[in-house]
Amino acid sequence: MFVVFGLLPLLYTAWVSLHDWDLIDGPRAFTGVDNYAQLLSDWRFYNALGNTVSIFLLSTVVQLLAALGLAALLNRPLRASSWWRAGVLLPNVVSVVAVALVFGQLFGDTSGTVNAVLELIGLDPVDWHSDRWSAHLAVSVMVIWRWTGYNALLYLAAMQSIPQERYDAAALDGASRWQAFWLITVPGIRPTILFTVVISTIGGLQLFTEPQLFDPLGTSGTGGTDRQFQTLVMYLYERGFTEYDAGYAAAVAWAVVAISGIVVLVNFGLVRRMVARS
């Protein structure tokens, strides 16, 4: 089962990517690395890559910092602690489709709630969909909303395994709460932080549903009229499943695998170095 549905697809993807391959009619010709050569000079690929990285950085940085703060709050002696934990996890279990539609309404250009509030307090409405950076921000807000609580729970679990003695010793040395947080808590959960960076990377580079459904006009996968919020997987979807160019879509898939692999390897390198240091 794992070989069939786990590893084989990647090899098969590589094989398909070396062909001029129609999704419906099958392979037409072996073309070697032609698809990859085309990819390297395809501005739409670079556009999607840039959008993906931009949304990924925006959402990951904010999400992980917020999760760190939230975990510190949850780590204090609270009444009804399990309810708070459940509350912060709630966004993570809700269907992404529903999330994307609600936020699509909130960030609507002409009739959205956020713009209505902005106008109410005397600010100019924002073109959430047509402006590239605003669209990235809106999509990032959805990602942040979904994942902050989940990451906070992972951090909380790690924080609870830090021995209390370290904090007692720091208190004796006169450390403030703030110093204790940065000198004991954060180093103590370093492996978990890097783990969340890895999973956010893999997830962030695969972002699809949120931006796909953020597009109010249909499901063609272009991510706005100027492709201003088309991500890599949306581009894969557009080429493979609306234009039926399986060979090219497979090449895009492999490019994403390679990029994810590089980022994850860099992260593992960091983990090893940090573990060695402590």
Binding site: F2, L10, V16, V233, V256, V264
Partner: peptide, 19 residues
């Protein structure tokens, strides 16, 4: 190997899976 399949993003195998 099992853990490795988890590291490979499932969405990226969609082309062969579809075929």
């Amino acid at each position: 190997v099992v853990l490795g399949t988890a590291m490979v993003p499932a969405q990226l195998g969609v082309v062969p899976l579809y075929l």
